[in-house]
Nucleic acid binder design. Structure first.
Lengths: 217, 217
DNA sequence: ACGATATGAATGAATG
DNA sequence: CATTCATTCATATCGT
């Protein structure tokens, strides 16, 4: 996670093109050209986490993804699929880690979110500092969250209204700031925090044209 | 030399001491990071390898991870994620190494192997022999855990083909950027007209990009 | 000490 | 949604 942010912020529109190759040495079977996997900038991560934790966004719909990515694009190159994967991964990992300590003999209750009261699951027997460096107290977006989908039945409607206090002008270039991520290093394990997800966003619109949509969650 | 096998008998892993010691150099100004990464004891490694090689455990499930970590905990502090990562890494690295010399099971010469297409200058790690020759025998007979899944191998065929479809459908430039905060004043839908459902095609690389995503309008 | 290497940890991407 | 693969970062450890 961010306990040691390992990213070099390439928010500039420059493309990390692999090139080179040239068959140096052996093993040039694989042409790993353009391992250009999206490397989120700190600002992007901050926003994503904010959406995730403060707004309860877990599986954004296509519309949402579209807007989110559009918004994040000002902080660096990003595509819809990146947002899509991010949420999927983040969610999956949160669950998985949890699964490591609690499982066996009982794993058929999924009552995931929707638990306004702060449970004291503080027993974080497991590290899994998934969100290390993020304050549940909504440090930045103390406002409002119109981010819809609170019991909304219809589609969508994420308006992701939030006043991001991110004064980071890091649109291009300077990334020396690295705002929030670096702040929390000593906390170690913050535990997972299902506490935030106050979201009742259970409506999964339609998946993709695939038709294999499975509204399980 | 290959068998680097670091061996530091530290059965009592309470050594998480901030390196510091001298307070010079790097990173000593940050409070006790305490995030000292797990350093497996020799016993733990032995058992892990035993599971890996003798029992064919490659990707233990959450259930197994729990038991394994519980078992290993006798030999030092360990947590589920450590086990998880260990197997992932071990498998990945063994595989990575194999990827180069997949042929002639007879050669014994071992060349430094350099990663192809390495542009990551400062960070090359050469896949050297991880464990050349591990003795499949548990000398100390500390128990074998028997997590089942014995003959689950069948691995071996490298599937190094990845269809790399990069759908750079990103809208031209980041003109949408300026929408940051102002993007949200709506309640229902913002901007995008759902009529053009083609928005799906934005993400989900695999399912759409194959050209069959024509929304047929 | 420094540099190379080994390896734990993290996470993007992809598949089932 | 679960699992897995690949790649990369970070750091412990060893060799010189």
């Amino acid at each position: 996670m961010e306990t040691h942010q390992q990213q070099q912020n390439q928010q500039a529109p420059n493309d990390i093109q692999d090139s080179s190759s040239g068959g140096s040495g052996k093993g040039s079977f694989l042409c790993r050209q353009s391992s250009t996997r999206w490397t989120p900038t700190t600002d992007q991560i901050r926003i994503l986490k904010d959406l995730y934790y403060n707004n309860g966004v877990r599986s954004p719909s296509a519309d949402q993804i579209q807007r989110i990515s559009a918004r994040l694009r000002q902080y660096g190159k990003i595509e819809g699929k990146n947002v899509f994967y991010w949420f999927q991964n983040h969610k999956a990992r949160e669950r998985q880690k949890k699964r490591f300590n609690t499982s066996t003999t009982d794993h058929h209750h999924h009552v995931p979110l929707q638990r306004p009261t702060n449970i004291t699951l503080a027993n974080n027997k497991f590290p899994t500092n998934i969100n290390s460096g993020y304050s549940p107290s909504s440090p930045s977006s103390t406002g409002v969250l119109t981010v819809g989908q609170i019991g909304n039945n219809g589609y969508g409607s994420i308006t992701m209204e939030k006043s991001f206090r991110d004064c980071s002008i890091s649109a291009c270039g300077s990334s020396t700031a690295s705002a929030s991520e670096s702040l929390s290093h000593n906390f170690g394990w913050v535990g997972i925090d299902p506490a935030y997800s106050s979201s009742y966003a259970f409506f999964e619109p339609k998946r993709f044209i695939d038709g294999t949509h499975e509204e399980g969650q």
